[in-house]
């Protein structure tokens, strides 16, 4: 099976390299191939975005990195997840536990339900410190207060005694960020970090992530369906469709000149402030494919305005279309008018 491997041209260290990851879920309606040959990488201090519609496998891909796929229905079928060269899919569970929360941390979408309601915020923060870095309870408490302050929660030393429900939604998300930062990880994976928040709060949270990333030299992987988020805060974008990446490149290139029909469709569907006001919203025709019954060729062929015969029988592989810009498509580059 041809891989969608993207060759890296940078000299910075590669923190995370996902190669041809495949994860599936067994359900009563069939085996769903949530992640189907996913490949991308993240380098030190980079902020990489994974963008795609709901159900394209973004979250499943993220959970697979930490091997948090629940087993009876789910299974990581193959591929590699190289963390500083070490294949996480092959290490022991003990090593994995060591990495989770410690070297790779994850922030989830809904902070309100992701925080334990019956434990104090301080305890939830100090846990990782005590578990991974051998802090004592009092040392951990102090550090927790500092972390809360770092993410901008006022009166931190008193607030560590509070329970999650005593904080607003935005503050809860900041607490989650603080939890993720506790052991100064090399990589933070943020799964839809802003979806559950108000627009104004969204900006604050993203700014915060941005600052912290610069200060602490962390790599950040943001998973989102929100194109706006991606535009401002992310260095490189991976556009995902039906379980794999269809186009990847630096943010400004992708936005200025997308080269994959799906990306074009996505960007075209975002209403523009400077466009005519009476125009109807544009959507991409059709519906996302059934991940349990993926077609033979390109997964997007059924909805593609440019589909050719070849597209339904052959799967396109990644090819270079610009500096660090790759796409998986057969359609002639010149014929794409944008």
């Amino acid at each position: 099976m041809p891989s969608n491997k993207v060759p890296s041209e940078d000299r910075r260290e590669t923190v995370l390299e996902v190669k041809d990851l495949r994860t599936s879920f067994r359900t009563s309606t069939g085996i769903i191939k949530a992640v189907n040959g996913l490949s991308y990488d993240v380098k030190t201090s980079e902020c990489v975005g994974i963008v795609g519609e709901s159900g394209c496998g973004k979250s499943a891909g993220a959970m697979s990195i930490l091997r948090l796929i629940p087993h009876p229905p789910g299974l990581i079928e193959g591929g590699e997840v190289l963390f500083f060269g070490e294949d996480l899919l092959k290490v022991t569970e003990k090593r994995m536990r060591n990495i989770r929360g410690n070297r790779i941390a994850m922030i989830f979408q809904d902070a309100t339900t992701s925080l334990n309601p019956v434990l104090t915020v301080g305890l939830q923060l100090s846990e990782s410190l005590e578990a991974h870095q051998g802090f004592s309870r009092s040392e951990a408490q102090q550090e927790s207060a500092r972390l809360l302050g770092l993410v901008g929660i006022p009166d931190a030393s008193k607030r560590i005694e509070d329970y999650p429900h005593q904080f607003s939604g935005g503050m809860q998300q900041r607490i989650m960020i603080a939890m993720a930062l506790a052991c100064t990880p090399d990589l933070i994976i943020a799964d839809e970090p802003t979806t559950a928040l108000d627009v104004t709060v969204q900006a604050q949270v993203l700014e915060l992530l941005q600052e912290l990333r610069a200060e602490l030299n962390m790599a950040v992987l943001i998973i989102t369906h929100n194109l706006g988020v991606v535009a401002r805060y992310v260095d490189r974008v991976n556009v995902m469709y039906a379980g794999s990446v269809v186009e990847t490149g630096p943010t400004d290139q992708i936005y200025a000149s997308p080269k994959h029909p799906y990306t074009i469709g996505l960007l075209a569907s975002v209403p523009r402030l400077d466009g005519p006001t009476r125009e109807n919203l544009r959507a991409i025709d059709g519906l996302p494919p059934d991940l349990a019954q993926l077609p033979e060729g390109c997964a997007f062929a059924a909805r593609c305005a440019y589909a050719m015969e070849r597209c339904s029988s052959e799967k396109p592989t990644m090819e270079k279309v610009g500096p660090e810009h790759f796409r998986a498509c057969f359609y002639d580059l010149e014929k794409l008018s944008r």
Partner: peptide, 9 residues
């Protein structure tokens, strides 16, 4: 031109 294709129900 594209034609509207829906996924199989």
């Amino acid at each position: 031109m594209t034609d509207v294709k829906l996924s199989k129900s």
